[in-house]
Design a protein around this nucleic acid. Structure first.
Length: 527
RNA sequence: GCGGGUAUAGCUUAGUGGUAAAGCCCUAGCCUUCCAAGCUAGUUAUGUGGGUUCGAUUCCCACUACCCGCUCCA
């Protein structure tokens, strides 16, 4: 991305963030106390939008399917569940920092080096009577010169100089010694500088169960779940036994998960608390790969149905070596956010890994008896796992649009429109009396509002000029507005009596529609 | 976690070591017969905590949050 494009996208993102706050989609969590890093609250419109997304996902993936069942697991999670899944112990990456460049490296990905290490105890500068005492080491390897080690060490000690006028090369190193090392991972392969000791970064939130539990009581430890998937695996047996299921079948869940992200970024995209929409689709081993492809297509269709066109999505086929070790196939579905192409959902073929692990750790039989083949097996699983908040952010970014409109006097102005699909739009229809000081119009508008309210989210507004009310609805993405005018009351004759103006958000076009037809028209449009 | 930047009203911005300004928005009233009209009135702000000072929104320090670049994303 060029700098100019990057600036433009940053500006776009700022406008989106500003609109989200102004119109009540998303607020910073605990804003009046200075905010809570990586946490966000959905305001009234955001809550509606999110509910629409989750409801539609649930309808499509649970209610309209005979082969997928719903689950709503607890967020507090037994530590043994996460030991079995590998999250305790394995869910943290030991990291090292380069003492010279401050680069952060994953300890397990450092290339082992063999060479000569030069150790120092400190450095000084005679003329200014400055000195520093702290150990440092540099590794040189291959045919690198010893002087490279000294130069690197001087650069390291130079960061402690308060007077930046002194050049690193004028420093005197003290206590030089050397040793031969083989296959060491304590040095940065880029510059030979010593690294810090590996430090653990556990990404899970840990807590203690029981009011009297003290922090040292290991048996009282519980975690906030880092993904919704585990409760599905853990409840696999209960769901399967209580529901007369046969392979293939799925268990679906929508719920909150928590990860102590080192670095939350990009608005709500990487949050510490987030909601997932996951399916674990259990199947026979031989069907796994084909079902993974099938689910990928089905999920792409879903995104189109909620208003994210295929051409703004990217499918990443995760290559060998980059997938989790138990996965034979993983697709990432990515969206073109203004801040870059980022993942919305992963569709992963996880084999029998999860159920096998829980069977081992719990000692309970998690085998499934396949009536068709008359054999016991551990089902394989395909996991379409979508980020709910990420999808909301994608919907918002996709919907945001500015267009220039010219009024009757030829004056140009910018119209901000959220082009949500009617299905996802937080408010489905605005109902307005043309004028608020005419009681007949107001009464009729209230009637229309009352008729529609049981079926959809309706917004009634009688303040300000009609045009302003339309624009206000444009900015929150309301797809339709209806206006009750004097024709509705029959002033222009019976032909127009009980008809209203129906105004379309995207085209700004208006048409007459009878009140009798209104409900069904709108229900069809938002289905 | 590192480096850089930012923080004034709901939003966008101005300004000042001594009463904080404007536009938009919003609220109420009047008016108004279809795309941000007009008039009147009104609400709302210097992120948090220290320090310097007679006095700090302004200067200094720390913290917090957000943005950008690294890093990371099982």
């Amino acid at each position: 991305m060029s700098d100019a494009a990057s600036d433009k996208n940053t500006a776009l993102m700022e406008k989106i963030v500003s609109l989200c706050k102004r119109r009540g989609f998303i607020f910073q969590s605990a804003e009046i106390y200075g905010g809570l890093n990586g946490c966000w609250d959905y305001g009234p419109l955001g809550a509606e939008l999110k509910r629409n997304l989750k409801d539609y996902w649930w309808r499509k993936n649970v209610q309209e399917r005979e082969d997928i069942l719903g689950l709503d697991g607890s967020i507090l999670t037994h530590q043994d569940v996460l030991k079995a899944s590998g999250h305790v112990g394995g869910f943290s990456d030991p990291m090292c920092d380069c003492l010279l460049s401050k680069a952060r490296l994953r300890a397990d990905q450092i290339e082992p080096l063999s060479g000569t290490a030069f150790h120092y105890t400190g450095a000084s500068h005679e003329e200014s009577d400055w000195s520093v005492d702290r150990p440092f080491s540099v590794l040189i390897w291959g045919n690198q010169d010893e002087n490279k080690a000294r130069k690197t060490a001087k650069q390291y000690y130079a960061q402690f100089l308060s007077d930046k006028q002194i050049a690193p090369k004028k420093l005197e190193l003290s206590g030089e010694s050397s040793e031969e090392l083989t296959e060491t991972t304590k040095y940065n392969p880029d510059n030979g500088s010593l690294l810090t000791e590996p430090r653990e970064f556990n990404l899970m939130f840990k807590t203690h169960m029981g009011a009297s539990a003290d922090d040292g009581d290991e048996s009282a430890v519980a975690y906030l779940r880092p993904e919704t998937a585990q409760s599905i695996f853990v409840q696999f047996k209960n769901v399967a036994e209580t529901n007369r299921v046969k392979l293939p079948f799925g268990i679906a869940q929508i719920g909150k998960s928590f990860r102590n992200e080192i670095n939350p970024r990009n608005y709500t995209f990487r949050s510490r608390e987030f909601e997932q929409m996951e399916i674990e689709f259990f199947c026979r081993a031989e069907d796994g790969l084909a079902l993974t492809d099938e689910w990928l297509e089905r999920r792409l269709t879903f995104y189109e149905e909620i208003g994210i066109p295929r051409e703004h999505l990217h499918v990443l086929d995760i290559p060998d070596g980059e997938r989790a070790h138990y996965s034979q196939k993983t697709y990432d579905i990515e969206y073109e956010f203004p801040f870059g192409i980022q993942e919305l959902e992963g569709v992963a073929y996880r084999g029998a890994y999860d159920l096998t692990k829980h069977k081992e750790h719990s000692g309970k039989p998690l085998d499934f008896f396949d009536d068709e083949t008359k054999e016991k097996l551990i089902p394989h699983v395909v996991e379409p796992s979508a980020g709910c908040d990420r999808t909301i952010l994608a919907l918002i970014c996709e919907a945001y649009d500015e267009e220039t409109v010219t009024d009757e006097k030829g004056k140009e102005e910018t119209r901000t429109v959220m082009r949500f699909s009617p299905r996802m739009a937080p408010v489905k229809v605005g109902v307005f009396p043309l004028l608020k000081n005419k009681p007949e119009l107001v009464a009729k508008a209230r009637e229309v509002q009352a008729m529609l309210t049981p079926h959809m989210n309706v917004f009634y507004d009688e303040t300000a000029a009609i045009g302003r009310r339309y624009r206000r609805q444009d900015e929150v993405g309301t797809p339709f507005c209806v206006t009750i005018d004097f024709d509705t009351l029959g002033e222009s004759g019976d032909e127009l009596k009980d008809t209203v103006t129906l105004r379309h958000r995207d085209s700004m076009e208006q048409e007459r529609i009878s009140i009798a037809e209104l409900r069904n028209f709108l229900l069809d449009a938002i289905a």
